[in-house]
Amino acid sequence: MSAQEKYVSILELANQNGTTYELTEGDNGTLVVTGTAPSAEAKQALWDEYERLDPEFKGGDLILNIQTAEAAAAGGGMHTHTVESGDSLSKIAKGYGIQWKAIWDHNRDILKDPDKIYPGQELKIPM
């Protein structure tokens, strides 16, 4: 049985509760469901159904990547990194596999100097 058939009830639920989704095939036949739910409740309903079918999500054959419409509108492909004590732009950049200048370019509105960042600051990380 394909992953689609195994998890068909999640897809049916998504169609009912107004979640839009796209299906792709990931690693070794993994079904990747990428979508946007109209509300946090709708998203939770999908996760509840997933949990019912696979209580500890250990099957490895489904990746449920559902954002709420609200988060999708706000996020726009940026990730937020909260600065911790000991962080530097180059250290943070290394952690994400990008150049420090990319972080600098996206955060000039809150940073005055690339060498001066402070714990608690929220930096936008281009992904």
Partner: peptide, 13 residues
Amino acid sequence: QVIMQSGITGIDN
């Protein structure tokens, strides 16, 4: 959920 929402294409949980 956090892990699956990060844009990965496979998981060994």
